[in-house]
Amino acid sequence: MTYVRPLLIIALTLAAVSPQQGMARPIRNGGKLLLTNGITSLEGASGGGLTPWAVIAGNETSDGIGLSAHGTLVEVKDYDYQSAGVAIGIRDRIELSYTHQDFNTNEIGAALGLGKDFAFSQDIFGAKVRLAGDLVYDRLPAIAVGIQYKNNNQGAVVRAVGAKSDEGVDYYASVSKLFLSRSILLSGTARLTKANQMGLLGFGGGKQGGHTLQFEGSAAWQLSRRIAIGGEYRRKPDNLNIAREDDWFDAFAAVAISRNVTATIAYADLGSIATVKKQRGVLLQFQTAF
């Protein structure tokens, strides 16, 4: 039952955009420039590591259907995090994604009374549509809107810490542009969300129950065809009474190891998580895309 709504949203999205695809030419393979599909953000949307960009998953242009898969590992001071997921990019227009997140509280779980190695999990179904523009070629930047339906598996626990719900939907809009003359990519995202720590600590809380508007951004500098470095910022809501939530930052290097594999390493500062401050550490990701 919980999956009915995301599936419905995805089906409606497909129905809404399918007429224009009926006119399109036959499918062909391959075609995006290296790194221009981005990496996979924590919640499964293509973009940077912390925030979506207005790009579509996979290596295909408007003449193809692309796929990507990723695995991400984040090791901060007191917690471990892993996520893995898949995405399909249809004609460089529509992106549908699924990601499963695991957040392990290690020793902190015991201190919080949840038990050592207590883990929160979450499933995220995402859909993104590039409305207009192009990351590389056109004067108009790429512009996309997206939604993320998130379902946390620890309903009783997240309610016990003060969350209003174990499921929620984020809505976002992204604008992204690679400025070739400077080899710099800039991307900004506005997100409506009620998620606590992306939803891993549930949705809404005593300080703030509903959706709030948050801003996120990435800046990347392309050093060569295969290497880009940059930084990201993600503003976060602060909904829960018992645990302050901080904004996120990272500094990353992404390498196109081959046409189909992108590896990313980042230093991330995730601030205070579940009452424990200064959660800083390393983010690693491998993404494969076709």
């Binding site: 030419r25 062909r28 391959g30 075609g31 995006k32 420039l33 295909e60 242009t61 003449d63 193809g64």
Partner: peptide, 9 residues
């Protein structure tokens, strides 16, 4: 096609 243009790049 777009993929050809990218190849040309």
């Amino acid at each position: 096609q777009k993929a050809d243009m990218n190849r040309l790049v």
